[in-house]
Design a protein around this nucleic acid. Structure first.
Length: 458
RNA sequence: GUGGAUGUAGCUCAGUCGGUUAGAGCAUCGGAUUGUGGUUCCGAGGGUCGCGGGUUCGAAUCCCGUCAUCCACCCCA
């Protein structure tokens, strides 16, 4: 089974590419609907673009090599450094806030597992130059509307949100020292993935009294925002952040996605560069890895490129998302790419002859329809029609097109039951002449067939 | 990088105690009155049994190694 692609890399056969395209369509449609514009950068970058930010240990997870000019280079493992460079280079000329998105293929040298390969496509959506939490709400809504666009509901997918500043304020209020905060973050980040005793032990190891450790674990294991507000709403270190988070929640509700979102203080997003509100999207059953993750990184641009602008963004990979859609059966209706018409021999095929059949194919194509045919004159004239129809069906065509005994052009739906299938008869002369009314008739009829099939399907 | 499980046709899987030419379903291709049809029937193609070595008269089967996949770590996207 190893004669194909490299480990962790995928061949996209047409079925699989159709699924990928389905996801990409949703990404682009929603991003554009939210007024984001698309950009891209090089898939190969200087190695130090990544080591500058994350240190040399990251090299173990990069596809890196020395090119023929002696340059240390790497396949991009993430888009943010490229994005930061591009924005940084033109920061003064760009209208703020910047709203950009991209769908790069990213690479990381790691052991492949379910939901995690060495290569994937990741939608990146970023906003630069707006510090208001309205931008945070807008950003999360892009991710959630994509879920909705793909047929998922708030019962399938949950957004877990937190705010590092809020968590920080609460920790300080209950007695954690500044010096202990990083260790607490590390424990909190893993709270769902390791036994409570282990988490508690690590906290006491970091210097927290056991009562305080219990308090931290309780807060990070799920408290409602209302409870937090009641307890910390007036605490000096937390009040500002509680108020901001309340505002964030109300903006989410106003934008129509309030019921997708849960507060979860254990979301800290690795220990990376996030500075404010952070979020992750999960399938509600908890079977898969995170679908999407992102948040605010107000200091990153400055540390990378020198421009001091607030920023926020998220990444959403195609792998876990594809698994979720597959599990929920949401790829089934994705027939956007189906060929519309397939030539088959009818009762009038012999009389009309093969050249006229090809002329019909060409006329239909010029009229804007996608048309397939068998590309074999002997088989067209000699093979039983039932076999030709069967082939047309299996090729995925919406309808078969043929000449009937009167020489008219007959179009037969291939969707649904074949006995009593819907049929449309067209004037062959008009079809060949590219008649506009005839084209509209066929266009409308094909649309109706797909609608009917879709309804009887679901 | 560490530990565990699994590798037989494009897919899902049988294959007995080690015994003749490795099978089935689905899928693919051809055919069943010059044809109104998802059905049915007939037929065909398709295999380095992951790969390499070992034991044996004989290996898909037993042993060792290796590669790949999956799962759990590690780490993150």
């Amino acid at each position: 089974m190893s004669s194909g692609a490299l480990p962790g890399f995928r061949d996209f056969y047409p079925d699989e590419l159709a699924r990928r395209a389905h996801i990409f369509r949703a990404w682009r449609a929603v991003a554009r609907k939210y007024a984001f514009v698309e950009y891209d950068g090089p898939p190969l970058e200087p190695l130090d673009l990544y080591t500058k930010k994350s240190g040399d240990e990251i090299v173990g997870q990069l596809y890196n090599f020395v090119d023929k000019g002696g340059r240390e280079v790497a396949l991009r493992p993430e888009m943010t450094p490229t994005f930061a460079r591009m924005v940084g280079a033109r920061a003064n000329a760009l209208r703020k806030p910047v709203r950009w998105f991209s769908t790069p293929q990213l690479f990381r040298y790691e052991r492949a597992q379910r939901g995690r390969l060495r290569e994937h496509y990741q939608l990146n959506v970023d906003i630069v130059g707006e510090q208001s939490e309205v931008a945070d709400a807008e950003l999360l809504c892009v991710a959630l509307e994509i879920m909705q666009q793909l047929g998922l509901t708030s019962a399938d997918v949950r957004a877990r949100v937190s705010d590092r500043r809020l968590l920080n304020g609460i920790l300080l209020t209950i007695g954690v020292t500044e010096a202990q905060v990083p260790a607490v973050y590390a424990v909190v980040d893993k709270i769902a993935r390791q036994p409570r005793e282990v988490s508690a032990a690590k906290l006491t190891e970091a210097g927290l009294a056991s009562a305080l450790a219990d308090r931290v674990l309780a807060l990070a294991s799920g408290v409602s925002f209302e409870a937090l507000r009641a307890e910390f709403g007036a605490a000096p270190a937390a009040a500002e952040h509680i108020a901001r988070f309340a505002s964030y929640r109300s903006h989410l509700a106003a934008l129509g996605f309030g019921d997708w979102v849960d507060l979860d203080l254990s979301i800290v997003r690795g220990l990376a560069y996030y500075t404010g509100i952070v979020f992750e999207l999960f399938d509600a059953k908890g079977e898969l890895r995170a679908i999407c993750g992102g948040g605010r990184y107000d200091t990153l641009l400055k540390s990378l490129g020198g421009v001091d602008l607030p920023a926020l963004g998220f990444g959403m990979g195609d792998v876990v998302l594809g698994e979720l859609l597959q599990d929920r059966g949401l790829f089934a209706a994705a027939d956007e790419d189906a060929v519309e018409l397939h030539l088959v021999a009818g009762n009038g095929a012999g009389a009309a002859g093969y050249p006229k059949a090809l002329a019909l194919v060409t006329a239909l194509r010029r009229a804007g329809f996608s048309v397939n045919h068998g590309m074999n004159a002997e088989r067209y004239l000699g093979q039983a029609t039932r076999n030709q129809v069967d082939s047309a069906r299996k090729s995925g065509a919406v309808a078969a097109v043929s000449f009937n005994e009167k020489g008219e052009t007959e179009v037969t739906s291939l969707l649904g039951k074949m006995s009593g299938a819907a049929t449309l008869v067209l004037d062959t002369t008009r079809v060949l002449a590219g008649d506009d009314t005839t084209r509209q008739t066929l266009r409308t009829w094909l649309h109706e067939q797909r609608q009917t099939a879709r309804q009887s399907h679901g």
